[in-house]
Computed example of a mutant assay.
Amino acid sequence: MPREISLAELPGLVGQDVGVSQWITIDQAMIDAFAHATHDHQFIHTDPERAKAESPYGGTIAHGFLTVSLLSTMNYDCVPVVREQTMGINYGFEALRLISPVRSGARIRGRFTLTNVRFRGAAMCMTTYDVTVEIENEQKPALTATWQTIIQFDPKDRPEDV
């Protein structure tokens, strides 16, 4: 997949896998930093000894929302940039499921399939992606989501045929 595309090319990518990100290691330091930022210090995330003894996971796991928050990084890593874009906006999720826990030390990556492109108004384009966050050497993904983003652009750059 090219690193950069035009607005006019975007609708032609619907139905295609548009990117697979690099692996990201979810280590205990990242989990602890997220716990600190969100004030979520539940032991299954922040206390390796207790999590090993008292949880079914054999140690600490990442917060589900930590995994969700890394979608932007994964997207930037692998989804083609639209040349005419002046700003990108996270619009939200139609669906989001946290399927499997991500254990401390595991590596994850995102797989993005463009499922819809809809031009709105003179200077906005809504994109919808089916996203799967895979856990290395695991059969089940960490999460699946239907994610919507908005591409803003200068109205003069709007393709004529949309």
Rank of each mutant, 00 (worst) to 15 (best):
E9W: 00
R103I: 04
F119A: 09
I150Y: 07
A53G: 06
M124Q: 13
F34P: 01
L70A: 02
V117D: 02
H39Q: 10
Y57T: 03
E134Q: 14
T146Y: 03
D130H: 15
G15A: 01
R107G: 02
F34L: 03
I89N: 09
Y91D: 07
T86S: 15
D130Q: 11
S104D: 10
L13S: 00
N75I: 07
K156Q: 15
D130E: 09
I89R: 14
E4W: 07
Y76W: 14
Y91A: 11
S104F: 04
T132C: 12
V68A: 05
I31Q: 12
G12V: 00
V117R: 00
V131L: 04
H36R: 12
T60Y: 13
D77T: 04
V102M: 13
D17K: 15
V131S: 03
T67L: 06
G121Q: 05
R111Y: 10
I108S: 07
I44Q: 06
R158N: 13
K52I: 03
T128L: 01
D27I: 02
N116V: 00
R120T: 05
K140C: 05
L13A: 00
E94I: 05
G19L: 04
A95T: 12
A145F: 11
P2R: 12
F43W: 11
G12P: 00
D47L: 02
T46A: 12
G88P: 13
V102N: 08
P11I: 01
I89F: 15
S72L: 10
V117M: 01
R3V: 02
D40V: 08
R118H: 02
D27A: 03
I99C: 11
E54G: 01
Q42C: 05
H41Y: 14
A142C: 08
M126G: 01
H45W: 10
G110P: 04
A145P: 06
G121V: 06
L13K: 00
L70Q: 05
T73V: 10
V18P: 03
P48A: 08
P155M: 12
E160D: 13
S21Q: 05
H45K: 06
A53N: 12
G105D: 12
V82H: 04
I26F: 01
A33K: 07
L143A: 10
I151K: 10
L71D: 04
I61G: 13
N90G: 09
W147N: 05
G15Q: 03
E9H: 03
R3P: 08
P155C: 14
